[in-house]
Simulated assay, not measured.
Amino acid sequence: MQQNGAIVAGYDGSAEALAAVRWAAHHANLRDCALHVVHCSLWPLLTRKLGPVPGIADSGLERSAQAILAEGVAAAKAAMPGLEVEGTLLHGLPASYLARISDGQAMVAVGSRGLGGFLGLLVGSVSLELAATATCPVAVIRPDMNPAGPVIVAVDGSGSPTALEDACVMASVSQAALSVIHVQHTPAGYLQKDPTGAPTAQSGAEEVLAAAVIRARALAPGIPVDGAVLVGRSIPHAILTASMHARILVVGTKGHGFLRETIGSTAHAVLHHARGPVLISRRGTEQ
């Protein structure tokens, strides 16, 4: 994971966004970097009457947006006194702005919902869109926190080098144990053993895992690292089950298909169903 740049946190006043800001403040402190809190107001897209209301002090939609931003900045400073915190108010669609701001930053953190009021509740949420378009890792923070749990990273057949790197940094700065998992997909009717003695999918999965564990130990010296090959008919289900008590789950993006800005079916399912924080590992325009 990039060590330069700030951590960017989206804030809209919701409880989910507040959790994301506090989480981001904690991790900015661990990484010794600045925190940039951003609030995107959608009201200019819906009306020109931003206030103030004549005769009423501190009124109007623009003043409300400013107050929300100030609240987010204050929450970050309260969570981590002494942390360098910057606040920015923008006007427009949150995912688009946050994706642009993400360029060159260490990470973007958002809540699992919010960042857009009722518009943010539509299918294709801000967190999902941002996970597909940001140019740095995206942390999606959910209410179920396990601060004493391990960092868990899911690697595919390629070894998911970017996700593994991000997970190693996350474990190192948090001084947390790291668990590397690889899921061997077993469709119905799949044969576990080859009677001819030829290499099996199981042996291939073990090789992928062993290589990933060796690399993780090199990237995160002094951090306990273990690994496991999981077997299941559903890769996302196996990952989610294994990560129920994780401090954070790290997955890569590998979108395929007609849409350029996708994150892949596994990452998509994990984002929808995970109970705890998820880090979507991204670099530049990779899918």
Rank of each mutant, 00 (worst) to 15 (best):
residue 37 V to H: 10
residue 33 C to Q: 01
residue 48 R to T: 13
residue 32 D to N: 14
residue 13 G to H: 03
residue 17 A to T: 06
residue 18 L to I: 12
residue 37 V to S: 05
residue 33 C to H: 00
residue 45 L to F: 11
residue 52 P to Q: 05
residue 13 G to R: 05
residue 51 G to E: 03
residue 35 L to T: 12
residue 28 A to E: 02
residue 36 H to M: 08
residue 43 W to G: 13
residue 46 L to K: 10
residue 34 A to P: 06
residue 42 L to I: 08
residue 52 P to V: 05
residue 42 L to V: 14
residue 27 H to N: 02
residue 41 S to R: 06
residue 25 A to Y: 02
residue 44 P to A: 11
residue 52 P to G: 10
residue 25 A to C: 11
residue 30 L to Q: 04
residue 14 S to R: 00
residue 39 H to T: 10
residue 34 A to E: 08
residue 53 V to Q: 04
residue 13 G to T: 03
residue 45 L to K: 14
residue 27 H to C: 03
residue 51 G to A: 07
residue 44 P to Q: 03
residue 27 H to T: 06
residue 49 K to Q: 13
residue 16 E to Y: 11
residue 47 T to Q: 07
residue 24 A to Q: 00
residue 52 P to I: 04
residue 19 A to W: 10
residue 23 W to R: 02
residue 27 H to D: 03
residue 51 G to D: 11
residue 14 S to I: 01
residue 36 H to A: 09
residue 17 A to L: 07
residue 23 W to Y: 09
residue 32 D to Q: 12
residue 44 P to C: 08
residue 21 V to T: 05
residue 29 N to C: 15
residue 48 R to W: 15
residue 53 V to W: 07
residue 53 V to P: 12
residue 30 L to T: 01
residue 17 A to Y: 04
residue 51 G to K: 07
residue 40 C to G: 08
residue 21 V to M: 01
residue 51 G to R: 10
residue 16 E to C: 14
residue 44 P to T: 05
residue 45 L to Y: 11
residue 51 G to W: 15
residue 32 D to C: 05
residue 13 G to W: 05
residue 20 A to L: 14
residue 16 E to N: 09
residue 50 L to R: 09
residue 24 A to S: 03
residue 23 W to E: 01
residue 20 A to P: 09
residue 46 L to P: 12
residue 20 A to C: 12
residue 13 G to F: 03
residue 18 L to Q: 08
